[in-house]
């Protein structure tokens, strides 16, 4: 369980990225932080592995304040998947995946063997093992990123817009894979995105973050869609008047008659 307890983050120039925010991300669930760019969601994510230190408040993992943990040890115990994969360009696929276990002292041979197994888990062909990141497609790079996040078998996985830079078809594919992997592994996942559709697809719980790092609403996708807390949430969900949908034949259309979907 990850708990944010009254955390704030302000920068020297006076910008307030997060203000007095409290939040609990339950174990073995996917909690999605969703909001527009610059709303402070990435800052929140980075507080968990101490890439960012809150100005005030605490972040606790299973009731232990992360501020009391050695940052390097802490980071090795938490999986981190970032946008544009953040793979090390001078390491091959297996070596990228094996990074954290090797840092923890696992013999390279053993770590590489496990990396190859993980490639299978994330749906990568073993023939990619010896390739460098630039020799992979965007979707493959993200799969490597996910495998790397899982390599040390962490309880917690932090995912910062991991599928933001790939095309919609690949993204949908990666989302399905993540749900399948999560079904098998049951990690505590904190997932940041600006895409509400992605939040609804993946989230056991969705936290809508408004500018200034304030929680606009949190709940299951059903709760939020059924009962948006305010106009901001309504418009963020695309539920405002301009998007009031109705059925026309087999098509779902918006008020101007443009099709937005089809009945099954």
């Amino acid at each position: 369980m990850i708990e944010f307890r009254n955390v704030s983050k302000s920068y020297d120039d006076g910008t307030l990225a997060v203000s007095d925010l409290s939040l609990i991300a339950a174990s073995h669930e996917i909690t999605v932080l969703v909001g527009s760019s610059g709303c402070g969601k990435t800052t929140l994510l980075r507080m968990v592995n101490r890439l960012v230190t809150p100005t005030s408040g605490q972040v606790l993992i299973d009731d232990v304040d992360v501020a009391d943990r050695n940052p390097v040890e802490l980071r090795r115990s938490i999986g981190y998947v970032m946008q544009n994969s953040g793979l090390l360009p001078h390491r091959t696929t297996v070596d990228n995946i094996a990074t954290v276990p090797v840092l923890q002292g696992t013999p390279a041979r053993e770590a590489r063997q496990r990396a190859v197994d993980l490639m299978e888990t994330v749906g990568l062909d073993p023939s990619m093992a010896r390739r460098y990141p630039w020799q992979l497609s965007g979707g493959q790079q993200q799969r490597v990123g996910v495998a790397r996040g899982l390599a040390a078998d962490p309880n917690i996985l932090l995912m910062d817009e991991p599928f933001g830079a790939v095309d919609p078809i690949v993204r949908a594919d990666l989302q399905r894979e993540l749900l399948r992997i999560q079904g098998e592994l049951g990690k505590t996942i904190l997932f940041v995105t600006h895409d509400i559709a992605e939040a609804i697809t993946l989230g056991d719980k969705i936290v809508i973050v408004a500018t200034g790092g304030r929680i606009a609403q949190q709940g299951t996708p059903e709760e939020i869609m059924a009962d948006p807390a305010d106009d901001f949430v309504t418009s963020f969900l695309g539920l405002d008047e301009a998007r009031a949908l109705h059925v026309s034949g087999r098509l779902v259309v918006d008020p101007t008659g443009r099709p937005v979907g089809r009945l099954a």
Binding site: L51, R76, S77, Y80, M82, G86, R148
Partner: peptide, 9 residues
């Protein structure tokens, strides 16, 4: 790359 390295420990 540097951020990724730090984040991994």
């Amino acid at each position: 790359a540097l951020l990724a390295a730090t984040a991994m420990g």
